[in-house]
Amino acid sequence: MTTTTPAPAPPTVTRRAERHQPSLARLTGVELRKLADTRAGYWLLITIGLVAAGIVTVQLFVLGEEQQNFADFLVPSLLPVGLLLPVLGILSITAEWSQRTALTTFTLVPRRERVVFAKLAAMVLAALGSVLVSLAVAAVATLLARATGGAGDWSFDGSMLLHAAVLQVVSVLMGAGFGLLLLNTPLAIVTYLLLPTLWSILGGMISALRGPARWLDTGVTMEPLFGPDVTAGQWARLAVSLLVWMVLPLAAGLVRTLRREVS
């Protein structure tokens, strides 16, 4: 374990180029790498892929032959992936604190907001990547359906792709918001899964809450994104619910992360 190699000479010449702060693109690349370079992250990504494939495989068996179309395969695969993506977002943030890597991360990049923005960018890319995986899985299933006598219709509304992308990006960012705000893995995951559900249940039970629930329950407001048509009113409700469940946690969480003592 011991070497006699001399320590590297501390350079005496100023290296201007190396003094520049790392670009956001580079930091985003680093954060993308960090999503997959631990066992937990690696298996979470694999699981997301497997769940998408698994759901579509089930569809191949349960759907009637005339229903075995590209769009019919795509939509069901979005839901479970959309449930797991927030966990990815939460882990990316909270692991820095639970594993205490924040100490190294913020020592190398002391402008913490840059790390947070890079993490969010990496998550958005991962969410868009998941849509590509869903598309690929649905395409394979459609080919299989055609080969086994299913309808295998490729027709597909372009707006659905946009909605799917919005759905997954919003899901991962909501997770990130809870992670940033709570900075604790189990707490963030449980709160993320429980809070909107509790809100839905309360909205269902208490008539006075029924009105606000339609605007604030993400389970309701995100529903239209699974289809090709979203009305202006639905977009507005989605925006309001996201302001509460995504923008506010992200903003408050960013402030908390910037101020928190790292030890």
Partner: peptide, 8 residues
């Protein structure tokens, strides 16, 4: 802190 590394 040498222990502040991701164990995975």
């Amino acid at each position: 802190d040498a222990s502040a590394q991701h164990v995975g």
